[in-house]
Design a protein around this nucleic acid. Structure first.
Lengths: 255, 255
DNA sequence: CGCTATTTTGACAGCCGTCAATGAACGTGG
DNA sequence: CCACGTTCATTGACGGCTGTCAAAATAGCG
């Protein structure tokens, strides 16, 4: 879709893919990477704010986010936005596309991003032909539901401060799993407005909450980078143990 | 778990099961009902408020709700409750149990209920041996995630009145699909507290909202029965078309 | 260096929560 | 049939968390 000077990584062959371990279609089978490589139609680069998918569109493709951040959201009739999840490198964009022609949410690039593009039908056939992939697909879907229900609990029963602490720690955990954390710091492209739209708050109030957390020395947030200064206290505010917030873990003893 | 005088229906043979069409393991194959019948270990009756599953427990069983209502929820450390969904006849309790040993939520009977009990491993094997069932399972999981994300949007961006209208209309749609609505009325066992815990409100405020809706002649709620008096206005408040709220529909053109 | 988006700050408002008291509904047992 | 207890619904007063609005300060970017 574009040949831009890109500050994000360009997908190479699957054989050397750095996000392979977290990817839906990964198996231990020898030659699996080569097979997926043949399945990959192309890659695609998008600028920040570029549309990856628009709610209601029919598409024959399914994507894996290779580099950069994306955001999955719904728009309400009055123009309000509810962000459903933040997508990080290795995440599928998004699974239900495999099963349905149209989806009720949109996906947008939050930073410049690169995507691996697969034919939806071919990928579905590939996955369904492999029991290990089917189980992995089911687990992905179940985790997506579990993550959404965590968010329901956040919005239903937790204060703004708790919500922000939980979101920050969740992103911390997810990025650490991707080796994108160095010394408790990580790239953090979210604007207050993104956090607000994800947590059911306003950007102004998110700013106040972040200032308070910053003032108490719990975190540092500047120039697009976030540093966890006091994880213990943040976890206490979040009302969680570290593992509770890492919903990408194999979790709860999969069968 | 009990042999009680029960005001709810007792499961008969699957061959004549009234909720079969909406059930996870249903297929068109001849003999499918008989096979499922052999798979069914037993049925079980529980009183209202009985525990069906407790968060974190390991279980070898999976249930289908045959009659009555149940509620799926999480408890926060401070004792607050967030209801994740209401379960109606025919619903699985709950799907991820098929995939994981332990789940992060609890399930409780809301009315007296009857359950069909299956061995988890046997059911998983049955489903995975049938491509049609695998697709159905995947669709169920995806819809569960979609429903949770609808709820996220409710709690994040909609007013109390909108949330209540949407919940009532959603239950209306789901019960109609089960032929449990007669002349715009249906049994409604929810207390204000249940609605509040599902929608991120308090019971007191739910009472106020319901009074307002009642005062405007939109619905009638008495003696455990709810009547939709003005669906058009309710839909307008809910900011939705009728079909938007029926998340159990095959929906969005499944593949 | 000027434009734009974003953050910060303050004043104020409102939706919804909290607390408490009253009353209704219901089930139970005498 | 009535007494009683429990749960639930209703109502009012009050408070607070968060939203709204607006302006100023800052940062980002070409």
């Amino acid at each position: 879709m574009a040949e831009l000077p890109s500050p994000c990584r360009i997908p190479g062959p699957c054989e050397t893919c750095p996000v392979w371990p977290s990817v839906l279609y990964a198996t231990d089978a020898p030659g699996a990477r080569a097979e997926v490589m043949r399945l990959r139609k192309e890659y695609r680069l998008l600028r920040a704010r570029g549309n990856i998918y628009r709610a209601g569109d029919v598409t024959e493709e399914i994507f894996t986010l290779y580099d950069g951040w994306a955001v999955r959201y719904t728009l309400l009739p009055d123009g309000q936005r509810q962000i459903l999840s933040f997508l990080l490198p290795g995440d599928p964009i998004s699974l239900p596309m495999l099963l349905f022609d149209r989806l009720p949410f949109s996906v947008q690039a939050l930073t410049d991003v690169s995507l691996c593009v697969f034919d939806k039908v071919a990928m579905a056939a590939y996955l369904h032909a492999r029991p290990a992939c089917v189980r992995r697909l089911e687990a992905f879907l179940a985790r997506e539901a579990a993550a959404a229900e965590e968010r329901v609990t956040d919005l239903g029963r937790r204060s703004a401060e708790e919500r922000v602490a939980r979101l920050v720690l969740q992103l911390f955990a997810r990025l650490r799993r991707r080796n994108a954390v160095r010394d408790r710091s990580f790239a953090f492209p979210l604007r207050h407005r993104h956090i607000a739209d994800a947590l059911g708050l306003t950007a102004v109030h998110v700013g106040r909450v972040l200032n308070r957390l910053r003032g108490e020395g719990l975190l540092l947030l500047e120039r697009g980078s976030l540093t966890i200064l006091d994880q213990r206290t943040l976890l206490k505010i979040a009302g969680a143990r570290e593992i509770d917030l890492d919903w990408e873990q194999p979790y709860l003893g999969s069968i």
